[in-house]
Design a protein around this nucleic acid. Sequence first.
DNA 1: TTGTAGGCGTTATCAT
DNA 2: ATGATAACGCCTACAA
Lengths: 329, 329
Amino acid sequence: MKFNIKDVARKAGVSISTVSRVINESKIVKPETHERVMKAIDELGYKPNAIARSLKIKNTKTIGILIPDISNQFYPEVVRGIEDIANMYEYNIFLCNTDQDKEKEIQYFDVMAEKQVDGIVFIGNSVSSELHHKFKVYGIPIMLIGTNCEDIPSVTIDHVGASKAMVKYLLKKGHDRIGLITGKKTDPITHDARIQGYRLALEEKGLPFQEELILEGGHRFKSGYEGGKQFLEMENPPSAIFVANDEMAIGAMRAALEQGISIPDEMAIVGFDNIDMAGKVYPALTTVAQPMYEMGAIGMRVLTKILNEESLDTHNVVLDFSLLERESS
Amino acid sequence: MKFNIKDVARKAGVSISTVSRVINESKIVKPETHERVMKAIDELGYKPNAIARSLKIKNTKTIGILIPDISNQFYPEVVRGIEDIANMYEYNIFLCNTDQDKEKEIQYFDVMAEKQVDGIVFIGNSVSSELHHKFKVYGIPIMLIGTNCEDIPSVTIDHVGASKAMVKYLLKKGHDRIGLITGKKTDPITHDARIQGYRLALEEKGLPFQEELILEGGHRFKSGYEGGKQFLEMENPPSAIFVANDEMAIGAMRAALEQGISIPDEMAIVGFDNIDMAGKVYPALTTVAQPMYEMGAIGMRVLTKILNEESLDTHNVVLDFSLLERESS
DNA sequence: TTGTAGGCGTTATCAT
DNA sequence: ATGATAACGCCTACAA
């Protein structure tokens, strides 16, 4: 049922080298021999064994993606971007869900290395020092998406700037008491960067930074819902809430809606990311759009350049974010 | 920088077979030799080459997933299910987005075959005859998720039954004029099966089937929105709309909400699938839950059994759906 | 318990 | 233009 190059050679009455040549489209094979070989290939239904090939030529046309959780709304879009470009360059992708767990990250990295992937795309909010060490010690090209880390190539957006822009927008809308629901405090992006941007915008306007207006959330709907409720229960609630990601923002929206509070008239709520859902809820969510598909696509594109040893303009590309004003503010 | 088994052998002063034995945990190696070898492995930072290994032992501990589109809300959850189980059995997964395009399906299938995957999980609403032919001709184990096709192992739900159950539920709620927005008419699941279930429920109650209450949608938000609008504009609109999937249902909800129609009081809207978003929109969507994670997980589990040549109870497992009554009905 | 050697299916170098 | 043949890095009889 399964044939190899030898079988084809025998059937076509040529040597395996010749078969190899026609498979790899070397020009130096006589048209009629070429035809004979092709015929044998068809008749046998022969498919070259990519594993054997990889062993010999030392690349696998395969890249590994380390991602926190594909079932988290944010990531499928970037994976799609990666896959589209990868496919264009004839790479296949190994998908690995790390759950942001250091152990799993390391473990998957090792497996990917053993499976001889040509490159790795790492997505996550920070790279642990142990992982960073592995990155350096193995020669395998890495691309970071969503974070940066010293000298490793990356594609990101300016998170502090984006956060600041959103708060400035809210300020301009006349809100001067703005609540902020952050991500977990261990997260440099959805916690640190959001707060920093928030603080910067306030400072620029000469407004005080008030601890009571900052709530730590998780990253999921439920914690947004709870954060929203908590704000609503304050004696002097903010007139606008900036939530560190869309999923939580939608949770916060529900908290308001359930209490019959109208959005945006009585309370403005804005998010971050622009996940697919953000534009589909009612009222549609005002948010900062991260170009997720592009981050994946461009990240992969840069990686192919590295793999081909083409020269790069920058190793760290920073993409533009955009502020999407919709109905919730 | 990169060492092989030979380097380790030399460093440890043993033969490569011995090194191989310690890597593969054969019991028959003397503890002190074992230790010497381990030390050499550590010092060199040696990692076995899985490609070479695969070539020899003829399996790759790798499976391919052919899926329509990872950025479509329905799929990430099932992929996660697959990956979790795959990981448990030490398989890695190749992710391939087919966009339900026959060409791409074939093309990816070929690549997966060449890369010697141990098995394939196919997700999609139908398998083309050409693909089916390939499935049969190559010896590689296939698992279908979401459809079935003759003798190929599969995991599905009873779509007709589920559709019927939903319509019966609506009927019992007192709706006797129920609109239906289907998927594309080429789709056996979101079109044919939904209609059939709908028809069955009506028949059971002795109600007439009215063409004007059936609208063909795409699968996306926008077509749900348009379908919803179309129903709303009828002189005698239905009092409930059953939409073939959640994303479209949420679109239909928006159409109603925009016109100030209250859900469910003036119009009930229900969906199908129970994507993540369904429970988070406001009002939360009543829907038929497909156990997406389980479909992936169980599908992968069955596949591992096939790969291990364990005996199977059934090749075609049918999972239970459940009717989730929330706020939109 | 350990070592030798052949082979997995290719590609690539060297002859012819 | 084509054919032998030696790798690629590993596993596994079989031998010692």
